[in-house]
Amino acid sequence: MKEMPAASANVATSAPLRSSFLVVAVGWLIPGAGHLLLGRRGRGAILFVTILITFAIGIMLHGPLFQPGGAGDVLSRLIQYGGFIGDLAVGLPYLLARWLGYFPPDVAGHNPDYGSKLIVAAGLLNILAMVDAYEINSRQKD
């Protein structure tokens, strides 16, 4: 009987702060919002600004968005699918860009090339932010 309160206290401290799905989904949709939901305002704001600036510069450089599928060898298709996942990981900014008709042609030149890499980089950084928010939510870190 004496061990019961200790066991229930242990469960209470290891329980997630919020729904993990909600934290990850909100963090995906709006970069840094998962942290804001968990009360980490400073970190959330820095992540939001950093990821959004990276995405915005990619757009200003006219970086083309990756399209899944299409013809080509295995490596080309792997790059297309990987790039598409990276683009999609940015969340709402990516969806808004697509919805607003952002579809620059894939032209030769270093600026569009840098732009497409920055858009993918923004998505990959947002994946890191989502993993961090998940770990905070599951109390693996502060």
Binding site: I46, M60, L118
Partner: peptide, 23 residues
């Protein structure tokens, strides 16, 4: 083609290093 912005390789590398380091 008009670009809103243009970066050379060095500027791009420094920008990438900065955002990655922050996150």
């Amino acid at each position: 083609k008009r670009f809103l912005m243009s970066l050379d390789h060095f500027e791009m590398s420094v920008l990438f290093a900065l955002v990655c380091s922050v996150v």
